[in-house]
Each structure stands twice: as structure tokens, then as C-alpha cells.
């Protein structure tokens, strides 16, 4: 029963929460840069406006690919909040992301294709960390399980066993949340905000779909961060929310203080951090427990 409530809450509230975080993100970023920034509800206004426009495409397949992308990513969140297998969730998340990649490449447009290649590279960069994080959850005592419903009932917060995994996951969150220095795939081109890599050819409604999917995904990712904190004590949920928000704030801070890096730096740094933080943590877990 509680899982049904969780699913419904996710389906209904996630886009609002994601949009709100997006609005706050823009506000905070603006303040960091000494600007006033748009209203907090601006992302919702944007999406509403996009939905009122006609569908503009370069290739008709884009629409159905974007819809599939959205459906699969939401489905991943549903599985997660239903307490299902976390490794399956992340495998599916990659499959869903492939549909976005297809939507970018199907246009044969230069900027979009460039963004697609970069998106693929980013996926390759973060995939090991994501998979290892799942393995970390599994290895953490007391019971070896991938099931989210069991992982939230541990006697202590899993972060105590998984600090390295936490570092690696937060690190790749910068990529997943499309924050500088790792926002290659949607990077602005020649300071024109209309041209944004993989999303260049996503017009009107399709762009709205993209934005909403990003909101769902953001909530899902922050929920995974929260999973590091949550334990069988109800109070831990408050701590989890605080930690998730802190991580989110950290990402904004990184976004506003780091210059974009080249692709090879992105790949090398991410893999090295993954190996050092998650890999070493895993080694210790395997040796000790």
C-alpha cells in the first residue's frame, strides 16, 4: 500500500518539485552572479508556453522518441519508488537515455549530432559510477540486497559504509544534472542560448517533454542520494531531505564556479574518481564484510 502511495506521489509531485528546484536553481545562480534572476515559477511558465506552441520537428521520429524517453525515465522512477531492484532501475535509466540520444541523432543536424556524441561520452563516463553505486548498496551490511524497499529499512544510514560511493555518485551527478564543468552535451554554442547541443533541434512541445523528463529524473537522482541517508528511523527522512538539498546546492555552486572542461578531461577525471572513491570503498567492504 505504501508503495502505491509513493508511486502516486512521485508521479504527481515530482514534476512540481523538479520544476520548483529548477526555478530556485536559476534564482540562486542569478544571485551568485549578481543578477536578480527570473521568478521562481519561471520554468512552469516556460513549459506552459512551449506546450501552447505547434509541434516543430526536423524529423518526425523525434516526437515519438522523446515520448518514449519520457515514459521510460518516469517508469524508472516508478520502479524505484515501488521499492524494486535498484540495479534494474539504473540499467533501464541508461536504456531510456539512449532514446534521447536517438532523438538527437535522428535529425542529422550538425549541432544536435555534436551534442549527441558528447551525450554518449558523458553516459560512458558516468555509467561505471552508477553501476558501482548499486553494487555498493548491495554490499553494505546487514543484508545483501538490491531491493530499495529493504534498503530503506537498515538500522543505520548506509552512507556510513559507503562514503566513497557517495562521493563518486555526487561527482557524476554533476554530469547527470548537466552542470558545468561537465555540461558538454547541452553546452551553449557561441553564446546563443537557443543552441544547446543535443536539444538544439527539439522544438516547442518536444522541448517541453524534455524539460519535464529532466524534472522527473532530477527528483529520482536526488532520491538516490537520499537513499544513502534513510534508515528505519523516521527522523532520518528529514536528514535525507536536508542532505539531498545540500547536494543539490553543491551542484549549483560547482556550476557557477567551474569552467567547462574538454571531453577527455571529463572522461579521465570521472573514471579516476570512480575508481578511487567507489573502487576503494568497494574493496574495503569486500574485505571487511
Amino acid at each position: 500500500m505504501s508503495s502505491v502511495i509513493a508511486i502516486v506521489c512521485f508521479l504527481v509531485l515530482a514534476p512540481f518539485l523538479g520544476g520548483l528546484l529548477d526555478g530556485l536553481d536559476r534564482k540562486i545562480s542569478a544571485r551568485m552572479q549578481g543578477r536578480i534572476g527570473p521568478p521562481v515559477l519561471q520554468p512552469f511558465y516556460d513549459v506552459r508556453k512551449l506546450f501552447n506552441k505547434q509541434t516543430i520537428v526536423v524529423n518526425k521520429a523525434q516526437t515519438f522518441l522523446m515520448l518514449t524517453y519520457m515514459a521510460v525515465q518516469i517508469f524508472v522512477g516508478v520502479l524505484f519508488f515501488a521499492g524494486s531492484d535498484i540495479l534494474m532501475c539504473f540499467f533501464l535509466l541508461s536504456t531510456g537515455a539512449t532514446f534521447l540520444v536517438f532523438a538527437g541523432s535522428v535529425t542529422h543536424s550538425p549541432l544536435s549530432t555534436l551534442g549527441t556524441n558528447r551525450e554518449l561520452l558523458q553516459m560512458m563516463a558516468y555509467e561505471p559510477a552508477v553501476l558501482l553505486t548499486c553494487l555498493g548498496f548491495y554490499l553494505a551490511p546487514p543484508d545483501h540486497t538490491f531491493s530499495v524497499s529493504e534498503l530503506i529499512q537498515t538500522p543505520v544510514s548506509l552512507i556510513l559504509y559507503l562514503p566513497g560511493f557517495f562521493v563518486a555518485f555526487v561527482f557524476i551527478l554533476t554530469i547527470k544534472m548537466r552542470k558545468s564543468p561537465f555540461d558538454l552535451a547541452t553546452a551553449h554554442h557561441a553564446h546563443q542560448e537557443v543552441v544547446k547541443g543535443i536539444t538544439t533541434e527539439l522544438g516547442a512541445k518536444n522541448f517541453a517533454i524534455y524539460t519535464i523528463t529532466e524534472w522527473y529524473e532530477k527528483v529520482f537522482l536526488l532520491a538516490v542520494v537520499a537513499l544513502f541517508i534513510v534508515n528505519d528511523n523516521p527522523l532520518s527522512y528529514i536528514a535525507a531531505v536536508i542532505v539531498a538539498l545540500a547536494v543539490w546546492f553543491l551542484e549549483i555552486l560547482i556550476d557557477n564556479t567551474c569552467a567547462r572542461v574538454k571531453w577527455d578531461v571529463l572522461l579521465k577525471v570521472t573514471w579516476v574518481v570512480t575508481l578511487l572513491a567507489a573502487g576503494v570503498n568497494m574493496l574495503i567492504l569486500m574485505l571487511v564484510f
Binding site: 516543430i56 520537428v57 526536423v58 518526425k60 515520448l67 543536424s109 550538425p110 549541432l111 533541434e201 522544438g203
Partner: peptide, 17 residues
Amino acid sequence: AHSATKNIPANQKISYM
């Protein structure tokens, strides 16, 4: 998704270069 969007009128534009 494919069958649902097949008949939606879409304004086809050239790609951005």
C-alpha cells in the same frame, strides 16, 4: 508513442546550421 504521434500535424523545419 509511434502510433499516437503518427497523425499529429507537425511543422517540419530544416535543421539549424
